[in-house]
Amino acid sequence: MAQMTMIQAITDALRIELERDENVLVFGEDVGKNGGVFRATDGLQKQFGEHRVFDTPLAESAIGGLAIGLALQGFRPVPEIQFFGFLFEVMDSIAGQMSRMRYRTGNTEQAPITIRSPFGGGVQTPEMHADSLEGLMAQTPGVKVVIPSTPYDAKGLLISAIRDNDPVIFLEHMKLYRSFRQEVPEGEYTIELGKADVKREGKDVTIIAYGAMVHSSLKAAEELEKQNISAEVIDLRTVSPLDVETIINSVKKTNRAVVVQEAQRQAGVAANVVAEIQERAILHLEAPVLRVTAPDTVYPFAAVENEWLPDAKDIVAKVLEVIHF
């Protein structure tokens, strides 16, 4: 076991998969000699050579298209999109092409592609770098959308994503890259995609979150503990397809739920979770299911970022609303 940051765990997962399967290719902007703008691919080109780990021109649509061509030739491409705000440049490759590959070819082709991309707020990078765009991806059948919140999860989920035969969008929250270390086993292990994780058990209320908001939720749960409120915290880990079973089982136990997302409020993952709960467990609810989200504006400038982003205080306040309903 070693103490690792999330970025180290990601590099470790990439190294393990590059070693294990010669069809795995890592490419993107500055991922070669530079090792990626966040160093996620640090040292990989040196270890595996330029034919396995290579720089592309600044051309996100070509990165997506190349990945598709390579995948149809039997490779397992793991391209990096430098910031997920640049999603729009590669959106057609993802939502219009790779997500539909299996369906539109009647199962004769598949696109085992893992697109890694940093995203998320709280690190003083304004709009187009910090945006949470997972909701756009979650509305695209055919892709899986994975968002780890810990180094341990990041490694196991990334290995699973690379081995998965469908396209996976693997989103890495920038604030979590180096914010803490955790024990991470050496060598390979996998964490099943599409499975949420109960990060803290509780009996009075269920807080459902993902990404950096898992940590805000855990902090909120500690605060609530002081007020004798026992909060269960579920980390979705995969936001599409959603692990409805874990959510519903928890809500049936606690009878109250708050859903937290860093993204803006409208039409998001949280709204989807709320809908699933009320469709499947409404008779178990003692209060409406409430959301904690960012407001519906463009991702703001750095000076107000911390006010704009949801935090533990907002989560505590929302939980108290459902407790005292």
């Binding site: 298209g65 390579l70 149809l72 057609d92 490759s93 219009g96 070819t105 082709e109």
Partner: peptide, 29 residues
């Protein structure tokens, strides 16, 4: 929208020119 694996015809999409990067991916392979 032609595509037939056994005859090495690469499936495409509807927005025009999206097949060109796919072909380049094949060539890179």
């Amino acid at each position: 929208h032609f595509g037939q694996k056994k005859n090495r015809i690469i499936t495409g999409s509807s927005p025009v020119a999206t097949q060109v990067p796919h072909a380049v991916g094949f060539a890179l392979a």
